[in-house]
Simulated assay, not measured.
Amino acid sequence: MSWLYLGIAVIFEVAVGIFASKAKGFTMLRWTVATLVTGAIGTFFLSLALLTFDVGVGYAIWTSVSGVGIVIVGGLFLSQVLTWRKALGIAIVIGGVVGLQLSGAA
């Protein structure tokens, strides 16, 4: 169940990244509220996942997978350029997440 909670937390964290970019430094009320609400929901589900995961491992997976998700969403839907360097960084992050999982910490 902790993996499901972590997956939900990742989805909400990706939304936080997208909404925060639209909030324009928290000057756009609608996007600011969306950022804060999705951030709170994502953090709630992360806290549920951390009941099982080691804190360092769970947090590292959450932030890493969320970061990769935001880069991919930005490239697919927000007209942001996905360069080979970004793709290499994504591959390295995925390798790190797999390494954490293989460590048997969760």
Rank of each mutant, 00 (worst) to 15 (best):
Ser2Cys: 07
Trp3Ile: 07
Trp3Gly: 00
Leu4Phe: 12
Leu6Met: 00
Leu6Thr: 00
Gly7Phe: 05
Ile8Cys: 06
Ile8Phe: 04
Ile8Arg: 06
Ile8Lys: 01
Ala9Lys: 04
Ala9Arg: 08
Ala9Ile: 06
Val10Asp: 01
Val10Phe: 07
Ile11Asp: 03
Ile11Ser: 14
Phe12Lys: 08
Phe12Met: 14
Glu13Gly: 14
Val14Tyr: 05
Val14Cys: 02
Val16Thr: 11
Phe19Ser: 10
Phe19Met: 13
Phe19Trp: 07
Ala20His: 04
Ala20Asp: 05
Ala20Leu: 14
Ala20Pro: 02
Ser21Trp: 11
Ser21Glu: 15
Ser21Met: 15
Lys22Cys: 03
Lys22His: 11
Lys22Tyr: 13
Ala23Gly: 09
Lys24Ala: 07
Lys24Cys: 07
Gly25Lys: 13
Phe26Gln: 14
Thr27Leu: 14
Thr27Trp: 03
Thr27Ile: 03
Met28Pro: 07
Met28Ala: 12
Arg30Lys: 15
Trp31His: 15
Thr32Phe: 05
Val33Thr: 06
Ala34Lys: 00
Leu36Ser: 06
Leu36Pro: 04
Val37Glu: 04
Val37Cys: 07
Thr38Cys: 15
Ala40Phe: 09
Ala40Asp: 04
Ala40Ile: 11
Ile41Leu: 14
Thr43Gln: 04
Thr43Met: 14
Phe44Glu: 09
Phe44Tyr: 15
Phe44Lys: 07
Leu46Ser: 03
Leu48Trp: 00
Leu48Gly: 01
Leu48Gln: 09
Ala49Gly: 04
Ala49Asp: 08
Leu51Gly: 09
Leu51Trp: 00
Thr52Lys: 10
Val55Thr: 12
Gly56Ala: 13
Gly56Phe: 01
Val57Asn: 08
Ala60Tyr: 01
Ile61Pro: 05
Trp62Ala: 11
Thr63Tyr: 02
Ser64Thr: 10
Val65Gly: 00
Val65Met: 13
Gly67Met: 07
Val68Gly: 09
Val68Phe: 06
Gly69Pro: 10
Gly69Ala: 10
Gly69Gln: 10
Ile70Thr: 15
Ile70Val: 15
Ile70Pro: 04
Ile72Val: 11
Ile72Leu: 14
Leu76Ala: 10
Leu76Asn: 01
Phe77Ser: 05
Ser79Phe: 02
Gln80Thr: 09
Val81Ala: 13
Leu82Ser: 02
Leu82Ala: 08
Leu82Pro: 05
Trp84Met: 13
Arg85Ser: 08
Arg85Asp: 13
Lys86Leu: 11
Lys86Trp: 03
Ala87Cys: 06
Ala87Trp: 01
Ala87His: 01
Ala87Pro: 01
Ala87Arg: 10
Ala87Ile: 15
Leu88Cys: 07
Gly89Phe: 14
Gly89Met: 15
Ile90Ala: 00
Ile90Arg: 00
Ala91Gly: 13
Val93Glu: 03
Ile94Thr: 03
Ile94Gln: 02
Ile94Val: 10
Gly95Leu: 03
Gly95Asn: 09
Val97Arg: 10
Val97Asp: 11
Val97Ser: 12
Val98Leu: 07
Leu100Val: 05
Leu100Phe: 12
Leu100Met: 13
Gln101Lys: 13
Leu102Trp: 04
Ala105Lys: 10
Ala106Tyr: 08
